[in-house]
Design a protein around this nucleic acid. Structure first.
Lengths: 203, 203
DNA sequence: TTGACAAATGACACTGTGTCACATATAATG
DNA sequence: CATTATATGTGACACAGTGTCATTTGTCAA
């Protein structure tokens, strides 16, 4: 987490640094991001950066945390609206994100997330502690899920289901950046994946 | 791909380089791997490395290709044994790999793979072209899959199913390294995941 | 006005990269 | 066999980026 020296900075200066970081982290993933670029863009001295943050990991983690909270808030709201139907919540969530991307509203922000957010076990190197948590890793949200129709005997199974939903759907979205698929094609893909998970592949 | 200068090397020297690379790539993922360590371990000059390979990506790619072929061979065999049942083939495949890991037979090799193999759209940086292909990306293997019970209307759906199987099951295995789960727990997880995909989560 | 503390700075030592001119080995030729 | 040609091996070098730290600058209370 950032040091007090950063938190005490004027809003303007903080914003400048955050924007520079957003630019760099949306350009390349963490491993390739350079502190040099960030300090040059933000027009601060190299030493200052280390006065504010432990490392670039620290900065990225800080930036992703705010997103984690947004996602959690969004999911909580949707769970209420959809009476605990986790499948529908996932569809709503991805609908929202893809639409945001298409509208290009803070596009850089979303690109940064997709470049750098890994499911918690995607990576075994430096990144392993920076993974953003899927929204349903919070107990409070898990408890809001309607379990009556799910074949779950225990909490482990529920977690497995949540992980499958998270991993599968995220993958579909990432492909947007790679293949530059159309919005409709992406949507078809994640809807189909969720259907498969719900009702199974075999007839 | 490696240059001829490498391919023309004596088997002994090639092996020394491959082993040094295996050591480095199983220690850390590609991004953190250092050519310096590899050339020191293999006792070759820095310049020689660049005479053999374009880059460390090139070397890793080369090493993963051999594994890709093995996996393809294995899958073809299992598809015949299981009369095209792709679910069973995945179970057999992961049974085999986890057993290999537990027996510690060429453990370094498997660790290297899990550290560095990403599903083809996991990563948006340098790694995007190094992804190992899941065995069923080969048309010849796809054609061996028994489609009579699968709800597929077109090739895209089949590919989606294959991707889901691949992504989901691989994730379960990777957790072995992180959580150091027992063999039985890992097996339970990927069997359960495959069951969910087969028959659906909803009753 | 001074002193004391917080914050900012950039030169510095360090690590690793990719290259290149040169050294050495191997093969081919008269 | 000597000579030339070609392929392979080598490590010093320039470069890029990192994290540190002694020093400077800014701010505020006494």
């Amino acid at each position: 987490m950032p040091k007090d020296t950063f938190l005490n900075l004027s809003e303007e200066k903080k914003k400048k640094i955050i924007n520079a970081a957003k630019k760099e982290f949306s350009r390349v993933p963490l491993e390739e991001a350079s502190i040099k670029n960030i300090v040059e863009e933000a027009e601060i001295a190299r030493g200052s950066f280390y006065q504010y943050f432990e490392s670039k990991e620290d900065l990225l983690k800080y930036m992703l945390t705010s997103c984690e909270k947004k996602l959690e808030e969004f999911s909580k709201q949707k769970l209420i609206e959809n009476r605990g139907d986790i499948f529908q919540v996932y569809i709503d969530m991805y609908d929202f994100i893809t639409k945001e991307l298409i509208k290009s509203k803070d596009r850089e922000f979303y690109i940064m997330i997709f470049r750098n957010v890994k499911a918690s076990d995607d990576n075994l190197g430096v990144l392993q502690n920076i993974a953003i948590k899927g929204p349903f890793q919070e107990t409070s949200l898990i408890n809001m899920i309607d379990k009556t129709n799910l074949k779950v005997n225990n909490d482990d199974d529920l977690k497995t289901i949540i992980r499958m939903l998270y991993i599968i759907t995220r993958k579909a979205l990432v492909s947007y950046f790679i293949k530059k698929d159309s919005y409709n094609k992406i949507r078809d893909t994640y809807i189909k994946m969720i259907e498969y998970l719900k009702y199974g592949i075999l007839k």
